[in-house]
Design a binder for these strands. Structure first.
Length: 269
DNA sequence: ATGACGGATCTAATCCGA
């Protein structure tokens, strides 16, 4: 009997209401089992449930708020144990988790939107950077296996940890998202929780790979000054079962795009 | 020039993203 296939996608959509058409096209063309969205920028009752239901994504864990932030996990399969953790007790909406019962057994999926951290990389002068560092610190408690269920952690972590996760390591060392205190913090989260970085398992660290390009560039594709801010991590036993991983760069060139592109991971369970 | 764009908000200019 063939092993069941499981496909997960993550995408910072930068307003799910504005870009629901792009989301529908994406789901029709790539048919993941689960899609984790960040920056939905709407309240729970404004989330376009109907559009997802009509495409077969009948199970939605939505944790939104007015105007900013917000995460949602939509699935073809039932979701249970849905909960959110209020990291750094800010009362904002940056995490939602759930357990999916796949044909290959249960998987817990954490969906994160880590704070961007503002402009200045100094926690004393810049409260947003302080918030980001505290958020990362609290993530160190999270382990990749809970209650014998393997975990997946995805989302916009707003940190590009490796040299080839940014267009210029030297020029970005003092820029929030690639400073040593952030990259070391993220590496600690990964090491302490026994997480495997699936993008870098699939694409060697010698190769540049980005998931975000600024809106401000005149020509994002030609300049190609991107960063790898979006991540897919898993427990080691799931990492062994990864069969494919795609960073959908072309999505940055769609009409009225998000500044982030989807990342997809496929497993043979 | 990294790079001045683009989203939401009590529609106008302000906050936020990274």
């Amino acid at each position: 009997m063939a092993s069941p296939s499981f496909k997960l996608a993550t995408w910072n959509i930068n307003s799910v209401r504005l870009r629901i058409g792009l989301v529908e096209d994406f789901l029709n063309n790539h048919t993941p089992d689960v899609l984790c969205l960040q920056e939905i920028k709407c309240q729970n009752d404004q989330f376009p449930l109907k559009a997802f239901r009509e495409l077969g994504y009948e199970h939605c864990a939505v944790h939104g708020q007015k105007g900013y932030h917000g995460v949602a996990t939509v699935s073809k399969h039932p979701l249970r144990e849905v909960s959110s953790t209020d990291y750094v007790a800010m009362g904002d909406t940056r995490h939602v988790e759930c357990v999916l019962d796949t044909n290959g057994g249960p998987i817990r999926v954490h969906n994160f939107y880590v704070p961007a951290g503002g402009d200045e990389a100094d926690p004393v002068k810049n409260p947003k950077f302080d918030h980001k560092l505290k958020f990362i610190d609290e993530m160190k408690q999270l382990t990749s296996a809970t209650a014998n269920i393997p975990n997946i952690l995805v989302g916009d972590l707003n940190i590009a940890p490796l040299e080839n996760d940014v267009w210029s390591h030297k020029q970005l060392l003092k820029v929030v998202s690639h400073t040593p205190v952030e990259t070391a913090g993220l590496n600690d989260v990964m090491a302490q929780g026994a997480w495997t970085d699936l993008i870098r398992q699939h694409i060697p660290p010698e190769e540049k790979i980005y998931t975000w390009w600024s809106y401000r560039a005149r020509d994002w594709d030609a300049a190609d000054k991107g960063r790898r801010l979006d991540h897919v991590w898993s427990a080691p036993e799931l990492a062994e079962k990864l069969t494919d991983l795609t960073v959908l760069r072309e999505a940055r060139g769609w009409v009225k795009p998000s500044d982030h592109v989807p990342v997809m991971a496929t497993f043979s369970l």
